[in-house]
Computed example of a mutant assay.
Amino acid sequence: MIRAGEPRRLGVVASEARLDFGTELQELGGGPRRRLLMVDDEPAFELSFYCGTCPLLFRRLEAAREKLSLESMQERLTGALDDPGDSGVLDAFGALLPEGEYLPLLLSVEPRLVVPGKDGDYFSGEQVATWGIDQFWGLPEYPHTPYYRTFETAVDAVAHLYEFVVPMVPPTWNERHRVEEYATSMEAGTVPTAVAISTLDVCRPAVDLGDDYSAHWGLTHFLLDGHHKLEAAASAGRPVRLLSLLTLDESLAGAQECARLPELRARPRSARTAGSPPAQV
């Protein structure tokens, strides 16, 4: 955590926003409706289900095929950005977002790229330890995208915070020369800034199916600007700043839980060990 701003109203009416949150239309006789992050009115990511007892989820869908950066902000974001309440930056990116209440957070992250099913994958690791595998498919949840893990810490003895940065498109779609340029710049000491719209989903299993019954607080940042920066930081082992615009209206967390984020994000990083709850903080 570098700084936290005050909650503020940002965005435009849903019909004008490129990003929006919604629920898919239910077909006659269909199952429960999915909670979605929409891009240009098309489903881009399936999110954690509304019930709050299903596993945490961000699953890339077919409409997630382009980045949403604003070229006019590139120069400003490349330099130092010290104020998460900077009106110019917030208003510029607010033009992409649906109108609502957002909590600006300026974070320092050291991203680690994770491939689903491979070492460090949350969905086949910590999530399985709590929920077990999907009872229908007999497999862990699958996000259909590489993603970055950046932070985790204890909330209390029975809950843990996990933080993720999710690219709108796979890192393999990035331009190699731009990634290399950022990596070289970072190795020389530059710390660039990326921007994301974020959700906080608090998920707690209804029954104990795994080895580690606990609540998972999922802080998920969907990248608006900074795809090349995040990959470069991961490859170079360097930090990057992340301006997070946390939606208070669309997160599966209450006001008190969202208000705790600045304090939780300022704690030391601590991994969760299945079956061994952390000490009360």
Results as ranks from 00 to 15, higher is better:
residue 33 R to T: 10
residue 164 F to N: 04
residue 278 P to G: 07
residue 160 H to R: 07
residue 128 V to H: 02
residue 179 V to E: 02
residue 114 V to R: 12
residue 126 E to K: 07
residue 112 R to P: 05
residue 67 K to W: 15
residue 63 A to F: 07
residue 98 P to K: 04
residue 159 A to W: 00
residue 227 H to L: 15
residue 57 L to A: 01
residue 226 G to N: 10
residue 260 R to N: 14
residue 194 A to G: 09
residue 219 L to V: 04
residue 83 D to M: 02
residue 170 P to Y: 02
residue 175 E to H: 06
residue 130 T to N: 07
residue 262 P to K: 14
residue 96 L to P: 11
residue 247 T to I: 06
residue 66 E to I: 06
residue 248 L to K: 13
residue 172 T to Y: 02
residue 163 E to R: 03
residue 203 C to A: 10
residue 128 V to A: 03
residue 233 A to G: 07
residue 140 P to I: 03
residue 229 K to I: 08
residue 106 L to T: 02
residue 12 V to R: 13
residue 28 L to N: 10
residue 200 L to K: 00
residue 47 L to T: 01
residue 114 V to L: 04
residue 94 G to L: 05
residue 57 L to E: 02
residue 169 V to A: 00
residue 152 E to L: 03
residue 6 E to I: 06
residue 81 L to I: 08
residue 62 E to F: 05
residue 37 L to Y: 02
residue 41 D to N: 08
residue 255 A to E: 10
residue 62 E to T: 08
residue 74 Q to C: 12
residue 277 P to G: 15
residue 31 G to S: 13
residue 21 F to R: 14
residue 153 T to R: 02
residue 244 S to F: 12
residue 62 E to V: 10
residue 56 L to G: 02
residue 187 E to K: 15
residue 154 A to S: 09
residue 234 A to N: 13
residue 211 D to H: 06
residue 157 A to P: 08
residue 58 F to Y: 08
residue 121 D to K: 12
residue 183 A to S: 05
residue 88 G to N: 12
residue 70 L to G: 09
residue 64 A to F: 04
residue 210 G to W: 10
residue 205 P to V: 04
residue 267 R to I: 13
residue 250 E to G: 14
residue 127 Q to W: 05
residue 174 N to A: 05
residue 252 L to Y: 13
residue 53 T to N: 07
residue 184 T to S: 11
residue 63 A to Q: 01
residue 114 V to I: 09
residue 25 L to G: 09
residue 52 G to M: 05
residue 62 E to P: 13
residue 76 R to K: 14
residue 221 H to P: 03
residue 126 E to R: 11
residue 101 E to Q: 09
residue 12 V to I: 14
residue 134 D to I: 10
residue 149 R to S: 04
residue 270 S to T: 10
residue 68 L to M: 04
residue 153 T to D: 04
residue 208 D to W: 05
residue 136 F to V: 13
residue 103 L to R: 00
residue 15 S to E: 15
residue 24 E to M: 05
residue 119 D to W: 09
residue 169 V to K: 00
residue 107 L to C: 10
residue 157 A to M: 08
residue 103 L to C: 00
residue 11 G to H: 04
residue 7 P to G: 00
residue 85 G to M: 01
residue 256 Q to C: 07
